[in-house]
Amino acid sequence: MPKISAPTIAAHRAQTRERILEAVATLTRTQGIDGISMTDVAAEAGITRTALYNYFPDKAALLLAFTEQVTHGFVDRYSQELPGDATAAERLSAFVRFQLEGIAEHPHPAAAELGASLGPDAYQALADHVAPMQRLLVRILHDGTEGGEFRECPVEATARLVLAMIGAQRVPLVSDETTIADAHVLVTAFTLRALGVDEEKVRRCVSEPPQKVTERQD
């Protein structure tokens, strides 16, 4: 069993916690969150199951911590790869692609399935952890409507619809029935057209990677 060397107990605990979450990330790529057991995670992290319970008392707590880490990573990536001068349409396109890449990287069950396995309290906590992503999408929609780029719409409800469309790509992505690129075109083009974006800009947003889109000045 590998040992973790650290100058202090606090640093040792931080390193162990990081190894545990890395183990969850690795396992989600092969069996999905719903199929992971605490025994699997302990083995992958190179620690005993007893040691794992010293960090996370149950699977719900472990998944909440993992979800929080993934959410923070998403928000950080979005901030780093999309300069503030990107248009709302470009930002929405990037948001959709990053979300789809996250689903492919860390497959997870649908919300209803996750809620059934975690219980209502843990499910609500999970929803709270992913709220920053929804707020980010709401801000994109709000900026687009305020700036006249999108037609007027109820942004909160529209954000939920967009997230539902992204979530609907989970099974096709995980089962290799579609690709990230094709799912991105489907969701982004449908959404932008519904928001009144002209066809030329729709085509431009779905044909260029988010990183390159922001390098172009209109």
Rank of each mutant, 00 (worst) to 15 (best):
R203M: 13
A65S: 10
E101W: 06
E90G: 12
V206I: 15
G147F: 04
L100W: 11
D218Q: 11
R17W: 01
A42P: 05
D218M: 05
I103G: 11
R204K: 10
P109M: 06
T30E: 13
L92N: 05
T158M: 15
G119T: 05
P7H: 03
Q217D: 14
E146N: 04
L92Q: 03
L62T: 12
H12I: 01
A112W: 09
A131P: 01
E215S: 08
R151F: 01
E68D: 13
F98S: 05
R151T: 09
H12S: 13
T39K: 06
V162Q: 01
V185Y: 04
A111Y: 10
P120V: 04
A168N: 06
L186S: 10
D121G: 07
A11G: 14
D58C: 02
A111S: 15
A110D: 15
I4H: 02
L63W: 08
L82T: 15
L163E: 10
K3L: 14
K201Q: 11
R170Q: 10
L186R: 10
E177F: 09
L27Y: 05
L126S: 12
L186G: 01
H72D: 15
A157Y: 06
D34P: 00
A6G: 09
T8V: 06
S175W: 02
E149Y: 01
Q80G: 07
L52W: 01
A60K: 02
A23V: 11
M165W: 07
V70I: 09
Q80W: 06
A183I: 04
Y78C: 12
T191W: 02
A60F: 01
L126N: 09
E146H: 10
G119Q: 03
R151Y: 00
L114F: 04
A159V: 04
G73R: 06
A25R: 06
V187G: 01
E81Q: 14
F56D: 09
H72I: 13
C205A: 11
V206T: 14
A23Q: 05
Y123S: 13
S93N: 07
T50M: 15
F74S: 08
A131H: 12
F56R: 03
V162S: 03
L141C: 06
F190C: 12
Q69F: 00
R135F: 04
I36C: 07
A157H: 10
L163P: 00
R91V: 02
L161N: 05
V130M: 06
P57R: 14
